[in-house]
Simulated scan of single mutants.
Amino acid sequence: MFSRSELLSSATAFCDAFAQNKDLDTILSHFSTTHQVSAVEHGEKALLPFLGRSFEGLDGVRSYFHIIAALLSYENMVFSEFTVDSEARRVACKGKAKFIWSETKESWTETFAYMVDFDDEGKITDYQVWADSGAAYLARNGELDKVRKVCTI
């Protein structure tokens, strides 16, 4: 069984690699090769191609990260408030970053949440994300800045 400190170390290593825009092979090296893996970004699947569906297996997880990289970029990503459940081998954390929709160049800063499950070797089996799908959807359609001008309450 992995200890609390080992789970925290595995989670922060993954988050640091993502925050530092490491290459996809480095990101995927944090995922299990002995268990079925998945990536899910929660939200309405009709809004964006990476929302609301489970990307299964290493090829599926690779596809998820390819889609994200093709549509978005991000800056100044930081993670905080790591919560470790060593019995469930799960770590949750909060992240914050500025995201830019590549096609429209519209950007937004958001706080998001990760929940990551690990195998008995400290490798990720399940990666879940909760983020601001509304801002991403509006940015994709080039409407985020227009909505900001209207909603100045």
Rank of each mutant, 00 (worst) to 15 (best):
C151N: 09
S32R: 08
E6L: 07
V147C: 08
A17I: 04
L24G: 02
Y114D: 12
F112K: 00
E75F: 08
V116H: 03
L58Y: 08
N21G: 03
S86H: 14
F2N: 12
D132P: 09
C151Y: 15
A69I: 01
A46S: 15
H30C: 11
D16F: 02
K105N: 13
S86L: 03
K123F: 14
F14D: 05
R53N: 07
G60Y: 13
F31S: 03
V61L: 04
M115V: 14
T125W: 08
R90D: 03
T111G: 11
R148W: 10
E110L: 04
D85L: 05
D23T: 13
A39C: 13
G57I: 02
H66Y: 10
G52M: 05
Y64P: 02
D145N: 10
D23I: 07
S73H: 06
E106M: 01
E121G: 05
K105Q: 05
K94E: 14
Y114L: 09
I124T: 03
L71W: 00
R148L: 01
A70Q: 07
A46N: 07
D25F: 09
M77H: 06
L51H: 05
F112C: 14
L28K: 05
A139P: 15
T12R: 13
Y64N: 02
S63R: 06
N21L: 12
L24K: 10
S38H: 11
W130K: 01
E44I: 15
A92E: 03
D132H: 04
M77K: 11
R4S: 11
E143C: 09
W108G: 03
L144A: 06
L71F: 11
D85K: 04
S86D: 05
S10C: 13
L138G: 06
F112W: 14
L51D: 01
F14Y: 11
I27L: 08
E75M: 02
S63V: 08
R89P: 10
G122A: 06
C93M: 04
N21W: 10
F50Y: 15
V78H: 03
S102V: 15
A39G: 13
K94W: 00
F31G: 02
A11Y: 03
D126C: 09
H42G: 07
D16G: 15
F99S: 01
F65Y: 04
V61S: 01
N76F: 00
A131G: 13
K96F: 05
E143W: 04
E103V: 12
K146Y: 01
I100E: 05
I68E: 08
V37M: 13
H35L: 00
Q36W: 07
T111E: 11
V91R: 01
K98S: 00
D126G: 14
F65K: 01
A13T: 01
L51W: 02
L71E: 10
K149Q: 10
A135C: 11
M1N: 01
S10L: 06
T109E: 12
K146M: 07
N141Y: 00
